[in-house]
């Protein structure tokens, strides 16, 4: 019964991860500008990928594989915000302006 419980937990995590990843891609297509898209890609994407690796860790029932999968989760959680931040900064500095719905833009104000 205990092994069965592990399998149910892992399967649920897997589907949740896949669903979050799909929602992240839908967000990247639907949201209005680069910066809002980045919210979807960095948060839902990182959680989706992390959940799938976590499911692998739960399901493998092998210590070596589980530890590697958990290190993989940490890696994903560390690198996703770094790459999002780099890309956002590069885009802003090269003149990619946020969309017209944007309420406040403190960077533009500080440069004036």
């Amino acid at each position: 019964m205990l092994e069965g419980l592990e399998l149910y937990l892992g399967g649920t995590l897997l589907v949740l991860g896949a669903a979050f990843t799909l929602l992240a891609t839908i967000g990247v297509v639907r949201l209005p500008d680069l910066y809002t898209r980045m919210h979807a890609a960095s948060k839902a994407g990182a959680v989706g990928g992390g959940l799938i690796l976590l499911a692998v860790a739960v399901l493998s029932q092998d210590a070596a594989v589980s530890v590697r999968a958990i290190i993989g989760v940490m890696f994903v959680l560390l690198t996703t915000p770094v790459s999002a931040h780099l890309l956002a900064r590069a885009s802003y500095l090269t003149g990619y302006r946020p969309c017209n719905d944007t309420v406040i833009d403190d960077i533009a104000q500080s440069n004036e």
Binding site: F20, L23, A24, I26, G27, R30, L31, P32, D33, Y35, T36, H39, A40, K43, A44, A46, V47, G48, L77, P98, C99, D101, T102, V103, I104, D105, D106, I107, A108
Partner: peptide, 26 residues
């Protein structure tokens, strides 16, 4: 992290997206 992913997911699934987002740089 979990809260943020769920919130982004909910925003993305809204049918009228423009009313749900009010972006700003602070």
């Amino acid at each position: 992290l979990v809260v943020s992913a769920v919130r982004v997911a909910i925003v993305v699934m809204r049918p009228n997206l423009s009313s749900a987002v009010r972006p700003a740089i602070i």
